[in-house]
Design a protein around this nucleic acid. Structure first.
Lengths: 198, 198
DNA sequence: GTCTATACTTGGATAGAC
DNA sequence: GTCTATCCAAGTATAGAC
C-alpha cells in the first residue's frame, strides 16, 4: 500500500501522524523515523532540518484542506449558511486530526522561535479566506456598517485557535459545539433584525 | 534591593523574566539560574522539578493579577463599561508582559504534556471571573435570552488566548485594539436595541 | 538514496563537600 | 542552604560505507 510511496512523502506522512499522536513535544527526528519505519538520517537527507520538515508537513496538510474549505464556503450565501458550513468543517477537522496538527505547530512555533514567522505567513491565506466569506455573508446588511470583515476574520481565526488550544488541553469538545449554537442564534437574530429593518 | 529577597522568591522572579524575554523554549534551569545570578542546583532544591517551578511562577503572577481584575470588574455595571475595563486591563497586561508569560506557558503546556492539566485547572477561575462579569452586564437585556454567560465567557477567554498567541507571533498589536473597537460598537448597538425594545 | 555509527549540544536532575 | 562536579537521556546533525 504505502510501500511504493516515495520516501519524501512517507516522511511527511509519519510527521503528521507523530504530531497528531505525540504532539509537538514528542515530534523529533527519532520519533518520526520510528513511527514511519524509516531511517533517521533520511530525514536530514531529504529535508535538511526538522523545521523545514515541519513546514513541509504543514504545507501539505493545508493544501489538501484549503480546496475543501474554498469549495464549501463558495456555497454559503448568507451568515446562517456560513455558520452551518463552519460547524461542519470544524467537525471534519477535529475528526481527521487537522486541528491537533495546527494547534501543536502554533504552540510549537512559540517554543521554537525560528518557526514563528514561517507559521504566521502560512496563516494569512486562512484569514483572507475567512474575510472573503464574511464579506459576502454580511454584504448589504446592517452588520456591514458595524464591523470591518477584516477585523471579524482575524477575530474568528483567533477564536478558532484559542478554542483549539483549550480543547486540546482539556479534551472537552462539547464547548466548541455550544459556541456554534451561540453563532446560530446570533445569525438568526441578525436576520430577524435585518428583515424588520428593511 | 533584591539582595534580601528570599532565594525562593528570587528564583520565581528570574523564571518570570526568562519566560518574558526568552520564551518557553529558552526557559531552562540553566537559563533561569544565569539570569537570576543563582546556582542551578538551588532550583531543584527549592522546587524539585522545573514544572513545579513554572506552576509556582504562574500562580504568583495570577494571584497578583486577579485582585486587580476583580476590583476593576466590580465597577463595570453594563456591557459598555465592561468593554472599556477589558481594553484597559489588556493594555496593562501587555505592557507588564503578563500576556507573554501566559501565552508561553499555554503553548508550553501543549509541548510539555505533564503541564497540561495543571494549566487548565489554573485557567478555570478566570473563566468563572469572566462569566460573573458577563452575567451582570447582560442581566435583564435581550442578550440574556440569546446566550449563556458560561458560553460567552469561554469564548472570550479563548479569543483572548488566540489573540495573544497571534500577536505574540507577529508582533502586530494594532489588531487587538481594532477588536476592542468592534466590541465597543457592538455594545453600543446592543444598548440602542435594548432601549428601543423596552 | 539508504544505512550505521557517532560527534556534539543541551537539558533535567542528583551526590556530596562545605 | 548553597556550592561544584557530574551522570544520564534525548535531541540535531553529519561522515562515510554501501
Amino acid at each position: 500500500m504505502t510501500g511504493d510511496r516515495p520516501t519524501k512523502e512517507r516522511i511527511i506522512d509519519a510527521t503528521l501522524e507523530t504530531l497528531r499522536v505525540d504532539g509537538f513535544a514528542g515530534t523529533s527526528a527519532r520519533t518520526i523515523a520510528r513511527r514511519g519505519g524509516l531511517n533517521q538520517a533520511l530525514i536530514f537527507y531529504h529535508f535538511g532540518t526538522i523545521n523545514d520538515l515541519l513546514l513541509a508537513a504543514l504545507d501539505r496538510a493545508a493544501m489538501e484542506r484549503r480546496e475543501h474549505y474554498e469549495e464549501a464556503m463558495r456555497d454559503a450565501a448568507d451568515a446562517r449558511d456560513l455558520i452551518e458550513v463552519a460547524a461542519r468543517l470544524y467537525r471534519e477537522d477535529l475528526e481527521a486530526g487537522h486541528i491537533t496538527v495546527l494547534s501543536e505547530l502554533i504552540a510549537g512555533s512559540l517554543t521554537e522561535p525560528s518557526l514563528g514567522p514561517e507559521i504566521v505567513a502560512r496563516m494569512q491565506p486562512w484569514i483572507d479566506l475567512a474575510e472573503g466569506a464574511i464579506a459576502r455573508a454580511i454584504e448589504g446588511t446592517f452588520v456591514r456598517e458595524l464591523v470591518q470583515p477584516r477585523d471579524l476574520a482575524f477575530a474568528l481565526v483567533a477564536l478558532y485557535l484559542g478554542v483549539d488550544l483549550l480543547t486540546q488541553l482539556d479534551g472537552d469538545h462539547a464547548r466548541a459545539e455550544s459556541l456554534f449554537e451561540v453563532g446560530r442564534r446570533l445569525t438568526v437574530t441578525m436576520s430577524m433584525l435585518e428583515d424588520g429593518a428593511d
